[in-house]
Structures are given as structure tokens and as C-alpha cells.
């Protein structure tokens, strides 16, 4: 897993920004060193004890012009570097979106317009292939930021933005919402799974399938509860009558590694805990405690675990 560090670039875009950041940081470090050096020198050399008689001086026009012109030249060169860098970090040519991410309070809806796949919170991409991400928001402003893969982009309701992101090699890249969006902003995390093209194709094929509705055992009861109780008001499971659009699509919930935008690992025990009392784990989330009995929770978990 790659932590969300600016210093760990894994795409051409992130590399480009990383290079610029390093160059500018070094230049700025030199500026700080020069100023610190001058201040230290002046403080030691011209303290009253060492230098009791101040020199009367009102300025020196040449020096003044120098300390105006030199910073201006430094800034102009940084500006030049920046212009050259911008198109490499964030190419302006656009293609059709590979993926559309919609920010919600407090989770991510992820759509693949080409295949119709809909998932949540965990983005799968083929490694080595630049992906055109569309960014949208359903309620307030969010910001999609996976620094290893490229720039961040605000998701503003009412606007559609496009941004190129890529991962050079397979791996799991951690990111998060980067614009304060309310109470659970802290638990609005992202995982990007970059996969080899073969694995990605396999994942796509799995996601396109509609999971069968279980007909026996606890899972069958769970499936019935899901479609007849409150769950279906908010969640969609393709192939069933549950077509709610408020919460994440659960068609392939069991194929995901985490629950609730990274809040809990996705295993049966945590899933049960989550269903019993979501706000215990994510106090600002909009999924209520539904007052389910332990049996109902057990059956629902059994059902949801079949959604591979």
C-alpha cells in the first residue's frame, strides 16, 4: 500500500509535479538560507557591544535595485519552469471519461461509463494506462486527491471536471477527500487499485455480472430483508428490486476490501457491527441505526457476503 505522499510519485503526472516541487523547494531553501545567514551575520557583527558606533546611512539605491531585480529574476525563472510543467502535470487535451467519480457526504460513487459498472470508494484502474477521470459532486464540494497518481481536483456541485490520473505499476494507492465537506470529512478515504491489464479485465468481467439471488439458508432471508426493509430505499443491488440511489451501490460489496469509505475492513464481523450501529463508527454518516435484531443482521451479512 502506498501512503498518500507527494514524495512518492507513481505516474508521469505526479512525477512532473514532484520534479518541480523538488526544484522549487531547493531554490526556496537557498533563499531561506541566504536570509538566515544575513540576519545571523548582521546580529553578530553589528551588535552594540561589538559595533557601538552606528554608521549613518539612509539606503543605497544600487543595493535597493539589486534586491528588487534579483528576486524578480528568480521568480520569473520559476514561473517559466511552471508554465513548461503545467501541461505535463495536467494535460489539457481531453478524451471521453474512463471513470466518473461523484463525491457524496461521505463516500465516493464510482462509475465506469464504458461498461456501466458502478461501485463505491475503491477505484480499479489498469496500471500503465492513463485514465480520464470525470469529477462531480452530489451535495457539497469534495476533492479527489491521490497524490501518487496526479493532481487533486475539486468536485463542485453543478460542474463537471476532467483530470488525467495514472499508475505506472500495480499497487494500492491511498488517497482522501481534500476539501472539507462536513462532519465525516476525515473518514472519506480513497483506495485506488492499479491492476495488471489482465487482472483489471477480470475485475471488470466480475463486476459486470449480476450476482444470483440466494434461495436457501440465512442468505435467502437476508436477501428478502434487504429488498423489503429500509435498505432498498438507499442502496442499489443490481438484479434485485433494491434501486435506491442515496447510498453506495452494493451489487458487489463483498468484492471490496473496506466499508464506509475506509472506515472498517470488509469482513463479516465488521460488516455486522456496521449494520447494527453505523453512527458508532462514523458519527456523521447518513446511514441510521435501523434497530435490526441480531438474527436479521446475521442474515443480511450472510446475503451481502454472497455479493462477490
Amino acid at each position: 500500500m502506498h501512503p498518500p505522499s507527494v514524495f512518492d510519485p507513481h505516474s508521469a503526472y505526479a512525477w512532473s509535479i514532484y520534479h518541480l516541487t523538488v526544484v522549487v523547494t531547493i531554490l526556496m531553501g537557498v533563499v531561506v538560507l541566504i536570509v538566515t545567514g544575513l540576519v545571523t551575520y548582521v546580529c553578530i557583527r553589528f551588535r552594540e557591544r561589538k559595533h557601538p558606533g552606528p554608521r549613518l546611512s539612509y539606503g543605497n539605491r544600487k543595493v535597493e535595485i539589486l534586491y528588487t531585480a534579483l528576486p524578480l529574476m528568480l521568480l520569473a525563472s520559476i514561473f517559466g519552469l511552471m508554465i513548461r510543467n503545467m501541461d505535463a502535470s495536467d494535460p489539457i487535451q481531453r478524451t471521453r471519461d474512463n471513470i466518473v467519480v461523484v463525491g457524496h457526504q461521505f463516500w465516493w460513487e464510482i462509475r465506469y461509463p464504458g461498461t456501466g459498472i458502478v461501485t463505491a470508494n475503491e477505484v480499479h484502474i489498469p496500471a500503465g494506462k492513463p485514465q480520464m477521470f470525470g469529477m462531480e459532486a452530489a451535495d457539497v464540494i469534495h476533492d479527489f486527491w491521490v497524490p501518487q497518481l496526479g493532481r487533486k481536483m475539486d468536485m463542485v456541485p453543478g460542474y463537471h471536471r476532467d483530470v488525467w490520473l495514472a499508475a505506472n505499476e500495480p499497487g494500492i494507492y491511498l488517497g482522501r477527500c481534500s476539501e472539507y465537506c462536513g462532519k465525516e470529512h476525515a473518514w472519506m478515504r480513497i483506495r485506488v487499485f492499479a491492476q495488471t491489464p489482465a487482472n483489471f479485465a477480470q475485475w471488470e468481467a466480475d463486476q459486470e455480472k449480476i450476482p444470483p439471488i440466494p434461495t436457501t439458508g440465512d442468505a435467502a432471508d437476508g436477501a428478502r430483508y434487504f429488498t423489503t426493509m429500509t435498505c432498498a430505499n438507499c442502496h442499489t443491488i443490481r438484479g434485485t428490486s433494491a434501486q435506491g440511489e442515496i447510498g453506495p451501490d452494493l451489487t458487489h460489496l463483498a468484492s471490496r476490501t473496506t466499508l464506509a469509505a475506509g472506515r472498517l475492513p470488509n469482513d463479516p464481523a465488521d460488516l455486522a457491527n456496521w449494520i447494527k450501529d453505523p453512527t458508532k463508527y462514523k458519527p456523521g454518516c447518513f446511514m441510521p441505526d435501523l434497530g435490526l435484531t441480531d438474527e436479521q443482521v446475521r442474515d443480511l451479512v450472510a446475503y451481502l457476503e454472497t455479493l462477490r
Binding site: V35, V39, V42, F46, R47, E48, H51, P54, R55, G59
Partner: peptide, 11 residues
Amino acid sequence: AWIGTMWGGAI
């Protein structure tokens, strides 16, 4: 300018 002011002063 502030550093220039300190330069040559009796701080």
C-alpha cells in the same frame, strides 16, 4: 530593507 537597516548599526 530591514536587514540593510541593521547592517552597520549598533543593535
